[in-house]
Amino acid sequence: MVAPHAATPSLTAALAPGFADPVHDAQRCFRALMQTMARPGTIQAYANETIAPPTPLSRTLAALALTLIDYDTPIWLDPALAQNPAVAGYLKFHTGAPLAETPGDAAFALIGDPAALMPLSNFNQGTLEYPDRSTTLLMHMQTLDAAAQVTLEGPGIKTSQPFGAAPLQPMFWDQLTANNAQFPRGVDVIFAGATGFATVPRSTRITKTEA
């Protein structure tokens, strides 16, 4: 990584603490994430008080990024995260991940404002031959246990799993339903709340809860 030349304010933010114990912090974060990926719609508690990412990058979202991304994974930041250059600086410094030019080039998309999320079709959907080449969305959520908006079924779910998160773009669940319909192509969504994670991978079937 290129050493920055002068101690600018954004440099200070970039140097803000990441994982105190990179090996075990990343492992704990990953296990919580794996646990919820294997059980869509359930919430896995996770908190890390030591990392101090620049706003508006939340601690849990930053922890996910530090756990998952590196030189090999281009990332895309939504406008909410991109408006503070310190966020990109922090991620570049701690992970070395290159910034993707378009959301379609990104292995991971970090979403600071899910209420303003662009249509999911902008992200890489993978191909039928390589469905693993799709984008994974890491979304900052204010709450993961909102009143159920959807009922989830499919792999990882014994019968069915109610789920609700906020804030979300109004068409989000319709888009995610369409996302499931093109399985095995499609994006996987990881929700990062203040104290935990939840996921809805592309394999999950979604039924909107009657209002």
Partner: peptide, 24 residues
Amino acid sequence: DEQTKRMIRRAILKGIAVPGYQVP
């Protein structure tokens, strides 16, 4: 090493998301 673990962890998540698909 941690980079290798990250690479494997990413593959595991994809594998879980697409059950039965072999992730390179």
